[in-house]
Simulated scan of single mutants.
Amino acid sequence: MEALLASTFTVAIAEIGDKTQLLALILAARFKNKTAIVLGILLSTLVNHFAAAWLGQWAISWISPDVGRYLVAASFFAIALWVLIPDKVDAEESHFYALGPFLATFILFFIAEMGDKTQIATMVLSAKYDALAMVVLGTTLGMLVANVPVVIAGHFSAEKLPLEWIHRGCAVLFALLGVATLVF
């Protein structure tokens, strides 16, 4: 249960102001079918985060528990610094819009998540908790918690939120996860 809750909370906070949240805003403004957008986010995140969580568990299995603990802690500290750098949406991928709201969302979210801090966090959380299903479920729920409200209320923008404070809080959260990994 700890893996599920930590994964959900961590990714939900990390996602605020992230490029995929800004992408959700763009897709919500572009398409009227909000259900298709949410389903695209859900399935894309499940596939992407499953692969990341599996990779995290596979990688950690090759090293000793002590080295693994230090690597996981160092990764949390690195992500803590990374979240302080705000994301911007790359050039609009308008040629994907012709595929419709579901496929456009699925493809664009999958691509945007590659190497993104929430994907890396999923990998690290999976290595820490050794609970693949709970981490994937939690990180996917976290993505939905952060992105579904943006899709539903597409006229609101992430810029109205105190992003600087949210990013700082998220950095503190990742740093605390790093410390907890070293201590416990």
Rank of each mutant, 00 (worst) to 15 (best):
W54D: 09
S64K: 09
I63C: 06
W62Q: 08
I41M: 12
H49D: 11
I41L: 13
I37K: 01
P65H: 05
V67E: 08
A53S: 09
W62V: 08
W58H: 13
V67T: 10
I37Q: 03
G40A: 02
Q57M: 14
S44N: 04
R69T: 07
H49W: 06
S64H: 08
W54S: 11
W62K: 12
A53H: 02
S44P: 04
A51T: 13
P65Q: 05
L39V: 04
I63P: 07
N48I: 12
F50C: 14
V47D: 05
G68H: 01
W54Q: 14
V38L: 10
R69L: 05
A52S: 15
N48Q: 10
N48T: 12
L43W: 14
I60L: 13
D66L: 11
S61Q: 08
A53E: 04
G40N: 00
L42S: 00
W58F: 14
W54P: 09
V47Q: 05
I60P: 04
L55S: 10
A36E: 13
L55H: 02
L39A: 06
V38F: 13
L55T: 11
W62I: 11
I63E: 04
P65E: 05
L46C: 05
V47A: 13
T45H: 13
G40L: 02
I60E: 03
I37A: 01
G56K: 01
W62L: 14
L42F: 15
L39G: 04
N48H: 10
A53I: 07
T45Y: 12
R69A: 03
S61W: 06
L46G: 04
T45W: 11
H49G: 03
V47F: 12
V67I: 11
W54A: 14
S64M: 06
W54M: 10
G68F: 04
N48S: 14
V38P: 10
L43D: 09
I60Y: 07
G40Y: 00
G68D: 00
P65V: 06
S44F: 06
A36V: 05
S44M: 03
W54F: 14
A52D: 10
D66Q: 09
G40K: 02
A51H: 08
Q57W: 08
F50S: 15
I41G: 07
P65M: 01
G40Q: 00
I37H: 02
F50V: 10
A51Q: 07
G40C: 01
P65K: 03
A36T: 03
G56P: 01
R69Q: 10
A51N: 08
I37T: 01
L46P: 03
P65T: 04
I63A: 07
F50K: 07
G56C: 00
W62Y: 11
S61T: 03
V67R: 08
R69F: 03
W62P: 07
L55M: 10
G56N: 01
G68M: 01
A51S: 13
L46E: 02
L39H: 05
W54G: 11
A59H: 06
T45S: 15
L55K: 03
G56H: 02
W58Q: 14
L46M: 07
W58I: 09
S64W: 08
L39I: 05
W58A: 12
